[in-house]
């Protein structure tokens, strides 16, 4: 069931303008190259605090950030991608990871506790108990009826308070899009070892429309638009984690690399040249942030 094409409509990318396609790609590249700088800083022992890398899942953040632009976000611990795609400053993120006063939370909170409150976005920092952000987002939506994104992982989806939050949002018809970033791993334990049930089925039993979808950014954008009109709703997005749960270690090549798949698709769409320029622009920006040459290892 889990695959890079799960429920992705055929030819979906071709239904979007070149501008949208390149915006999606640009946002993905910014995350990937920013984190190339993080990995380099870790290897050089310049960065010694724990980091939770988003590489591999950045297409979801890119699509969500084009889907909504005035909302409150209750993100999970792994949220460099959400922070950057929704407009957070890479310099402030870098400084937060380094524990500097100029960081997004003055260096006090770190990689897994990112916040951003500008330009119509209110992204609240996570505190490390997985899924804790979900009831908070639901409570906030109840309190102010504002468009809300609750973003959590497939492990968090198993927390009783996350499931209770789905039910409460359904009861009160809250404007919440629940987004499960499903990398099929809790630390290194696969989902099938942990549970027999499916979060989409559970959500539907609460009365929430739910879609299980691979992380194709064009499909995410289209399905996301459809779900946005039916909130509360749940989107389960199948992604591949590029690195370990914490830190910059990895277990070899992931099942698929969405960034490479998007490059290939842009090439097929006749956008290879603009895509290369876009990637170079993102790379250059992050080289400036980290003050070093950056390259992707794969």
């Amino acid at each position: 069931m889990r695959s890079e094409k799960l429920n992705v409509p055929d030819g979906i990318a071709g239904r979007f303008s070149a501008d949208i396609s390149l915006q999606l790609f640009h946002r993905m590249c910014r995350v990937r190259y920013f984190e190339a700088g993080v990995v380099d800083a870790i290897e050089k022992k310049e960065l010694t605090y724990p980091v939770y890398l988003s590489s591999g899942q950045e297409s979801l953040a890119a699509a969500l950030s084009l889907l909504v632009n005035d909302c409150q976000i209750f993100a999970q611990h792994r949220a460099h991608d959400i922070y950057l795609c929704f407009g957070g400053s890479p310099e402030r993120l870098r400084d937060e990871l380094l524990g500097l006063e100029s960081g997004s939370s003055q260096g006090r909170a770190g990689s897994n506790c990112l916040q951003y409150h500008e330009n119509g976005i209110n992204m609240y920092g996570h505190h490390g108990l997985i899924g804790e952000n979900v009831p908070q987002g639901v409570g906030a939506a109840l309190a102010n009826r504002r468009q809300t994104l609750c973003i959590f992982g497939d492990g968090s989806a198993e927390e009783d308070y996350v499931l209770a939050s789905l039910g409460f949002a359904a009861t009160h018809k809250l404007p919440v899009l629940f987004v499960c970033v499903d990398n099929d791993l809790s630390i290194l334990t696969p989902t099938e070892v942990r549970r027999s049930w499916n979060i989409c089925k559970v959500s539907e039993s609460f009365g929430l429309p739910a879609v299980d979808l691979a992380d194709d950014p064009w499909a995410l954008l289209q399905i996301g638009r459809e779900l946005a009109g039916k909130q509360p709703a749940l989107l389960n997005c199948r992604v591949c984690r590029g690195f370990w749960h914490v830190g910059a270690g990895d277990d070899g090549a992931p099942e698929w690399d969405r960034l490479q798949l998007v490059r290939t698709e842009l090439d097929r769409l006749g956008l290879a040249g603009p895509a290369a320029d876009t990637e170079a622009k993102a790379c250059h920006e992050m080289e400036s942030v980290w003050d070093r040459k950056l390259s992707l290892k794969r």
Partner: peptide, 9 residues
């Protein structure tokens, strides 16, 4: 958690 979320906003 709902109460804390309401407090946050």
């Amino acid at each position: 958690g709902f109460a804390v979320g309401a407090a946050m906003v």
